[in-house]
Amino acid sequence: MEYFLHGLRNYAVFSGRARRKEYWMFLLFQLIFGIVAMVADGLLGTTWEAGGGGGMIYTVYSLALIVPGLAVSVRRLHDVGKSGWFSFIALIPLVGIIWLLILYCKEGTPGENKYGPNPKAEFAY
């Protein structure tokens, strides 16, 4: 949970580095809270007519987390020594998404790189 809150506190910080654990825990809690928002939509009857599981609460939640999700993914790419613009590699069908997933799973650059100090040394969660 601390990693999710750390991602929210750094809402639009696209500089620095994010370790693997920070990225994946942020995604995990984002998924969990998204499911809770969809369930709340279903219980409160605020789902859209077109269906799809989402509704008003889920839409607001998703829109609120676009920027912090993008920021933590850019910081994760910085940790492996890539520019944040490398996110656009996902636009290449199939191969781009797989390559980006591999980069997200890859061990970060040990020590300091051009994007900042090693985040493993900074955070001792």
Rank of each mutant, 00 (worst) to 15 (best):
L31I: 12
A18Q: 04
M38Q: 14
P110W: 09
Y11E: 04
A18P: 03
F123W: 14
E49G: 11
K120P: 06
L77E: 04
G81S: 12
L100N: 03
E22W: 00
Y125D: 14
L94V: 12
V13A: 11
V72Q: 02
Y58F: 15
Y61Q: 00
G81Y: 13
F4L: 08
W85V: 05
R75D: 00
L77P: 05
P110D: 08
F123P: 05
A124E: 14
I102E: 12
G108K: 02
F29M: 09
E22A: 04
L63G: 09
N113Y: 07
S15A: 05
F29G: 04
S73R: 03
E2D: 10
A37Q: 08
M25F: 11
G7D: 00
W48M: 14
Y58I: 14
M56C: 10
E49W: 09
W85S: 08
R9I: 13
I97C: 15
I89Q: 02
I92K: 06
M25G: 03
P110Y: 07
G16W: 08
A50T: 13
T46E: 08
A64Q: 06
L27W: 12
G51C: 01
G54H: 10
Y3E: 12
L101F: 13
K120F: 09
S87T: 14
F33Y: 15
Y115V: 01
L77T: 05
Q30F: 15
L94D: 02
L43N: 10
E49D: 13
Y104S: 03
F14I: 02
A71M: 01
E49V: 13
L100T: 01
S62K: 14
K120Y: 14
V60A: 15
M56W: 13
G53C: 02
I35H: 07
G84C: 03
G55H: 00
F4N: 05
P117N: 12
K114M: 12
S15R: 08
W48Y: 15
A50P: 10
V36H: 10
Y58D: 13
G51D: 02
L28N: 04
Q30V: 11
G55S: 01
L44G: 07
G53W: 06
N118K: 03
G116C: 02
F33A: 08
Y23A: 06
H6T: 11
Y23D: 09
F123M: 10
F29C: 08
I102T: 11
E22S: 02
T109A: 07
G42D: 04
V80W: 03
A12D: 06
K120H: 13
G111L: 08
A40K: 03
R17E: 03
L65D: 10
A71Q: 00
V95M: 09
G16M: 10
A124N: 14
G53D: 05
K21W: 09
G42H: 01
M25I: 10
I35W: 10
L77A: 07
T109E: 09
S15W: 01
M56S: 12
K106P: 09
L77W: 03
G53S: 05
V80Y: 08
D41I: 00
S73D: 02
L100E: 02
E107H: 14
G51A: 06
Y104W: 09
K82M: 14
T47N: 13
A121C: 01
